[in-house]
């Protein structure tokens, strides 16, 4: 990729994300109808779902780049995995914060041990663990370990989800999440905010990826300067 092209993209991604976030805010607060029973608090939903989609996408990127890293050993893929894991944890944290904020007035409880909620929490723990590996093991050894864990964590998530569902299947399910019918007026704001979160994810991950590449470059320079000095 040429330097001019890279410069353009460096401006394009943050600008597009900013524009999308502003339009999402406008669509959610000015255009979308107020929900009849839940009222204003329902508007959290647009950001909750957006964060969830972004987090899921980010963790999928971690999986794919981990596989590519283990196969190709190109440090670029490792940097992509690291960047996506960090932004993924960020959005997953947002999901876990916006969820209880909505649940408290609507369900009357901050938290319930429903399969979806529990799985999201475990998901968060898994990728925090991923970041712990990155922190504790620098260099290629950490990259390999993180690549392995990135695959393991992603495969484990559906298993966790189903095992909690089977587990809960024994007891009555208190709340069935999802299946909330959406008013037609809510769909465009939802699509805009989903797009905004995906763009925001792309911009942040790209930014983090660039930082990761700079860090690699610094390490290489340090190594070569040590070799040069007699």
């Amino acid at each position: 990729m040429g330097i001019a092209m890279k410069k353009t993209l460096d401006i394009f991604f943050p600008a597009a994300a900013l524009a999308a976030v502003i339009s999402a805010l406008a669509a959610v607060f000015l255009y979308a109808p107020v929900e009849r029973t839940m009222g204003l608090v329902q508007k959290i939903f647009y950001f909750h779902l957006g964060s969830a989609a972004a987090a899921f996408l980010a963790f999928t990127v971690v999986l794919v780049s981990s596989v590519f890293y283990l196969v190709s050993r190109s440090p670029r893929w490792d940097t992509v995995a690291l960047a996506a894991a960090e932004t993924g944890v960020l959005f997953c944290t947002l999901v876990l914060i916006t969820g209880p904020l909505w649940a408290r007035p609507v369900w009357g409880k901050w938290w319930v041990w429903d399969p979806r909620l529990t799985t999201t929490l475990i998901l968060w723990f898994l990728y925090v663990g991923y970041m712990v590996i990155r922190e504790a093991l620098p260099g290629p050894r950490g990259a390999l370990a993180a690549g392995v864990f990135g695959i393991l964590a992603y495969v484990d998530v559906p298993i966790v989800y189903f095992s909690i569902r089977w587990w809960r299947g024994i007891h009555p399910v208190v709340i069935r999440g999802g299946n909330v019918g959406l008013d037609a007026g809510m769909i465009p704001p939802l699509i805009i905010s989903l797009a905004a979160f995906v763009l925001l994810l792309a911009a942040l991950t790209r930014e983090r990826y660039n930082i990761g590449n700079l860090e690699l470059r610094i390490q290489q320079l340090e190594v070569s300067s040590k070799e040069d000095t007699p």
Binding site: F125, V132, A153, V160, S163
Partner: peptide, 9 residues
């Protein structure tokens, strides 16, 4: 920290 969330099932 790594093992407990993974072996929840």
């Amino acid at each position: 920290l790594l093992l407990f969330p993974l072996c929840l099932p």
